[in-house]
Design a protein around this nucleic acid. Structure first.
Length: 447
RNA sequence: GGCUCUAUAGCCAAGUGGCUAAGGCAAGGGUCUGCAACACCCUGAUCGCCGGUUCAAAUCCGGCUGGAGCCUCCA
């Protein structure tokens, strides 16, 4: 049984899919006005692992993440660069998609864009008005937060408290300062015709509409960064309560932030590290290890030291996996064998992952497996079944965390070379073995 | 002012009432080894502070202190 911390109920709950053995998941994607920084990459990496784990368990997974391609920031960026909004968003969608690839993210089933859903958004706002949850005010449309019970359930905020917060923007067009924009009349930038004015939609409607369009119904998991909890996700829930009388998703999941020097990393503060810069420096596997070493709900305070630790850790695991792979290959070991000791480690791994995706403990399982593997490889007698079982599990575990080692099978002549090297060593012909070792190393083969 | 989260060894951290407080990195020691590398083993914390509940608390409750976030765009 998978247990998930549900941000909506603030409890760890047993996961019950809407449809047996199927998972529907939506994660809020980036606004495409800039590159992705490492903070942005955390939900992308984490929810990729969530999707992988469900797939590993045999679920049919449908995972959708959007690109927000309409936003004031995109307009500003377009003006700054003297190009159109479409050019800005196209450019960054391309950049960000490329970063997804570099991080070895399994392609999402869909990456909907706001601009492709405009008619649906306008229709949806119409429904909210009809249902009485929204009102038109001088060309703008606002959501009336007083019309639904429990506004702010996710963030545990009451309307009164939000008003007292006093930092909500004052706007004469709103009945209540907490009401949020569904449609805004605009005179500049990209805009669309609607029954209310020429303008563009507010940010909070798009996700609800895309989910409705793609999934047609309530979904299992809605995810995103913690900073989207309020107002974005609370506003999504408010709209969905009004239109469909449900909270969109059964499980709401929020990942913690990535901080820099103990402070939040964000583009508005300017203390960002770009994902691509980090990827230029280290392999994506190390990057993922660093992120997954910290439980997803905790803040991750980025420091180079963490990267170094992850690098050392990954290097050991990779070497161990590599040696196992070579042994399987050189000894022609048949796969598909199962061993009870190895099965125990598999259970341990699955339990860790099932416990609200405890990747930190899952990595511990991998380390335990790699130690076992190293020991088996050194054993006097070759335990073919154990090695085979070990290899299969090792591969699966790494796959769940999105880590592939890219080891290539050896060519026949290379296999021969390695065997000769081993034979020379056994025969204590060190002159020859050193020479062969050098040849092997020169070919880039890791032993 | 309101609402959240958080505090475990030098660092990252597991832990959700009960055997000797996981694991990793770093450090020290050792084993293996033709050499180098690797690998393997061993060594460390009574859990921010105070009080309470309990036969029993790092784990529950209250208070205090420190750190962070949200209430404005943000993954």
């Amino acid at each position: 049984m998978i247990k998930i911390y549900n941000s909506l109920t603030k409890k760890i709950e047993d996961f019950k899919p809407i449809k047996e053995n199927e998972l529907t998941m939506y994660v809020c994607g980036p606004t495409v006005y800039n590159f992705m920084h490492i903070g942005n990459s955390r939900p992308i990496i984490f929810f990729d692992v969530v999707a992988r784990f469900f797939k590993y368990l045999g679920y049919k997974v449908t995972y959708v993440s959007n690109f927000t391609d309409i936003d004031d920031k995109i307009i500003t960026r377009a003006e700054e660069e003297g190009i159109s909004e479409a050019e800005v968003s196209e450019k960054y969608i391309k950049e960000i998609s490329e970063t997804y690839n570099r991080l070895n993210i399994i392609p999402h089933d869909k990456n909907p864009k706001v601009t492709e859903n405009m008619q649906e958004i306008i229709d949806y706002i119409g429904i909210l008005i009809t249902k009485g949850g929204a009102y038109v005010s001088d060309g703008d449309v606002y959501f009336d937060v007083s019309k639904i019970d429990n506004y702010g359930v996710l963030s545990s905020q009451t309307i009164e408290n939000l008003i007292q917060g006093a930092r909500v923007e004052t706007n004469d067009k709103k009945k209540n300062p907490v009401d949020f924009t569904l449609w805004k009349e605009t005179l500049t930038g990209l805009r669309w015709k609607s029954p209310w004015s020429e303008g563009r939609p507010g940010w909070h409607t798009e996700c609800v509409v895309m989910i409705n369009n793609i999934f047609k119904d309530k979904i299992d998991i809605h995810g995103g960064g913690l900073d989207l909890k309020f107002p974005h996700h609370d506003n999504e829930i408010a709209q969905s309560m009004c239109s469909h009388d449900h909270t969109i998703a059964n499980y709401w999941m929020h990942n913690g932030r990535i901080d820099l020097s103990g402070e939040k990393m964000s583009k508005s503060v300017g203390n960002v590290i770009w994902a691509n810069d980090l990827l230029d420096k280290v392999d994506y596997q190390i990057y993922r290890f660093m992120v997954l070493n910290v439980p997803y709900r905790q803040p991750l305070n980025y420091r180079e030291e963490l990267l170094d630790q992850a690098a050392t850790e990954y290097e050991k695991i990779r070497r161990s996996y590599n040696n196992l792979y070579r042994k399987i290959e050189l000894e022609d070991i048949d796969l598909g064998k199962k061993d009870s000791e190895i099965e125990k480690l598999k259970t341990e791994f699955i339990e860790a992952m099932s416990n609200d995706f405890n990747t930190a403990n899952a990595i511990t399982s991998i380390i335990n497996l790699s130690k076992l593997s190293n020991t088996l490889l050194r054993a006097k007698e070759l335990d073919r079944e154990k090695l085979a079982s070990c290899y299969s599990l090792f591969t699966d575990m790494l796959w769940v965390l999105g880590i592939e080692t890219n080891i290539e099978p050896l060519e026949e002549e290379d296999k021969k070379l390695v065997r000769e090297y081993e034979a020379a060593r056994r025969a204590k012909n060190f002159e020859l073995s050193d020479e062969l070792r050098k040849q092997i190393a020169d070919k880039g083969i890791l032993l």
